[in-house]
Design a binder for these strands. Structure first.
Lengths: 99, 99
DNA sequence: CCTATAATTCGATATTTCTAGAAATATAGT
DNA sequence: ACTATATTTCTAGAAATATCGAATTATAGG
């Protein structure tokens, strides 16, 4: 199975998710499933200007929470569940005192 | 059992934990156990100036991740596991698509 | 090659966060 | 009252983040 993440990586992930728009964005990608969604579709469903959204997507990508793949003009973004699972593992192991 | 948290509360918790110093702080409190730790002890173990630390503690308290209780001159801070468990529940339920 | 579409990067501003010294508050003991 | 200790609040500057229109890049199809 995947190994754990360090403190600073965990903090980066948490910071990336710690913004209402980005958290909604991430959840939208999770609901979109393993095929992900093009940026344009995210823009429509979140109602955020394209340039703003682009920055938020990059913030999540920088933390490793999403990956992007280009298919022609369309840039598909999808959630990286591995990173999320490692993050949850970190919180469960390091922040819960065996509860 | 505890009920879930909403999007905005989750984002606040994630933002509060999304800072290296605050994440270390929270982990230190978890390791300190249910009795918590006085601010002074945290200051010593983290090596952060008192005023800076005070702000970070308040950031965690504002998100409901820690609670403080005064005993004489000593202000004891302890982790609120309930909030953390709700946060982990949120991430597991809303951000993992049943994985 | 031209046009349309998808998305990013640029540029500029506004806002928030972070940091930490100094001053203030709260409490305890003498 | 006085002094020491614990912690916060005040203040202010620096750094980072957020926002979004306009310009730009990349690609596809005629």
């Amino acid at each position: 199975m995947q190994n754990g993440i360090d403190d600073d990586t965990a903090a980066s992930c948490l910071a990336a998710l710690g913004h209402p728009t980005r958290l909604k964005l991430y959840r939208t990608l999770v609901r979109a499933g393993p095929d992900g969604a093009p940026v344009g579709a995210l823009q429509e469903s979140l109602g955020v200007p394209a340039s703003t959204l682009s920055h938020h997507v990059q913030a999540l990508a920088g933390a490793g929470l999403v990956v992007q793949e280009r298919n022609g003009r369309v840039l598909t973004t999808r959630a990286d569940y591995d990173t999320m699972n490692r993050l949850i593992g970190f919180l469960t192991d390091q922040c819960c005192q065996g509860m």
